[in-house]
Design a protein around this nucleic acid. Structure first.
Lengths: 204, 204
DNA sequence: TCTGCCATGTAATATGTTACATGATTGT
DNA sequence: ACAATCATGTAACATATTACATGGCAGA
C-alpha cells in the first residue's frame, strides 16, 4: 500500500499531472519508490474515486489533454495516518545474492563480470547522490557532533538552521548514500577475494 | 524470475518437499529471497511441467501426501545460465524512507516510535546473522587482510581452507550483516538527531 | 472418533510489468 | 499536411499476498 501514499506525498510537495509525476518518479521520489506511468495513472484514478485527490481545471476530461491533480483534506489525513502507523521492514530480496548462492552450487562461471558491472552501477549511483547532497544540503548543520545547545529544549527554528523538513529529506538521502556505499564496499571485497582466491578460467 | 531459481538452488542443496522448502525459505534462503508456501507450490508445479524438476517416489500423487522433488539436468542447466546472465540491480523500494519523506510534508507524529521499533528489529536480525557466522564460518580465513601467499597463483584447495562454495556463502551472509549494520547505524543517527533537534510532543 | 497438526492445494485480490492504442499540441 | 512529441489511457500478463479448503496421519 505504498504507491498511493508516494503519490499523495509527491502531490503535496507540488500539484502535478500524471506525466509530471512519472518524471518525478524517475528522480527524487523514484530513488526509493519507483513506478511506471501505467501504475501512476491507475492509482490516480483510484485516489480520485476515493476522494483523496481531485483534478484541477478540467470540466469533462478529454483523452489526450493534460490533467493536473491536487490533494484534498481527506488525502492529507490518510497520509498522516499512514506515517504514524506501523509497518515491518520487508526482508531483503536481492537477485544478485541469490545468484551467488546458486553459484556456490553450480559454479561461478560469468559471475565476476557481473560483479564488476554492478560495482560500476552502484558507484555511479553513489556519485549522483553525493552531487545531490552537495547541491541541496551543502551547509551541513554546523553543530553536528558537538551539540552545544542551551539546557532547555524549547527549540524555535533559527535562521541559518535547516528546517525540520530539510533535515528529514537529508536523512532519507543519506540512507541512499549509505546503502550505495555498502554495496560498493561489499562488491569490492567480493572481487578482491575472487581475484586472490579462485580457481578456473573465470576472470573475464 | 528469481523465485524458480531460488527453488532450484534450494533443491540442489537438498531435495525437499514443498513444506520443507517453505520452512527453509523462513531461514537461510529466505534471508534474501522470501516466499510463501502458495508461491512455492505453484512454482513447483511449473518447474515440474517444464521438466526442470521431478517428484520422487510417488506413483500417482494423493492430495495430502508428502511429495519430494529433485532437480533434473535441464534444471541445473537453466540455473547455470541464470547465474551467468545479466540483471540490473533494482532501485531501492523502502516504505520507511517513503514515510520519512511524507513526514517532511505532513509532520513526524508517531515516527520516532516507529524508528525505535525498526531499530530493535534490525538489531535482532544483525545478532542472528552474527550467530550464524560464528557457528558456520568461525575459523575465518587466517590470511584475511594480510595475504602472505606465494607469488604464483596456482591454488589447489588446501586442507583447513574454506571451499569455494563456503567462501561464496559466507560472502552472501556478510552482505546481510553489512545491510543490517547499515540500517542500525542509520536509524541510530536518525533518532539521535530527532532527540536533539525536534519540536513537538512527539517523543513517544 | 475426535482433535490437532502435517501437507498440498485453490481462489480471490493486489500489485507490478510490458506492449500497445489514442488523442492533443507544436513545429516544419 | 505531416512528423514528432506530449499526455493519457487499455489490455494482457506475471508476480505476490491473503484467506480458505481438503486430505492424511498420529495420538488421546
Amino acid at each position: 500500500m505504498s504507491l498511493p501514499h508516494a503519490i499523495l506525498t509527491a502531490l503535496l510537495e507540488r500539484p502535478s499531472s500524471g506525466l509530471e509525476l512519472t518524471r518525478r518518479f524517475d528522480r527524487s521520489i523514484g530513488y526509493f519508490w519507483s513506478a511506471t506511468h501505467q501504475q501512476i495513472y491507475r492509482e490516480l484514478g483510484r485516489l480520485e474515486e476515493a476522494g483523496h485527490i481531485r483534478a484541477l481545471a478540467p470540466e469533462q476530461p478529454v483523452r489526450g489533454r493534460r490533467k493536473e491533480y491536487e490533494v484534498l483534506e481527506a488525502g492529507r489525513e490518510e497520509l498522516t495516518g499512514w506515517v504514524a502507523g506501523r509497518e515491518d521492514p520487508k526482508p531483503v530480496r536481492d537477485p544478485l545474492l541469490l545468484r551467488m548462492r546458486a553459484a556456490a552450487v553450480v559454479g561461478t562461471d560469468g559471475l565476476p563480470v557481473e560483479l564488476r558491472r554492478h560495482l560500476a552501477l552502484h558507484e555511479r549511483q553513489l556519485a549522483e547522490y553525493r552531487d545531490i547532497e552537495a547541491r541541496d544540503f551543502s551547509p551541513r548543520e554546523p553543530e553536528r557532533g558537538t551539540e552545544r545547545r542551551p539546557e532547555r529544549r524549547l527549540r524555535e527554528p533559527r535562521a541559518g538552521e535547516p528546517s525540520e523538513a530539510d533535515r528529514l529529506r537529508h536523512l532519507v538521502l543519506r540512507a541512499g548514500i549509505d546503502l550505495e556505499r555498502m554495496w560498493v564496499d561489499w562488491l569490492t571485497e567480493a572481487l578482491r577475494e575472487s581475484d586472490t582466491a579462485p580457481a578456473g578460467p573465470d576472470a573475464a
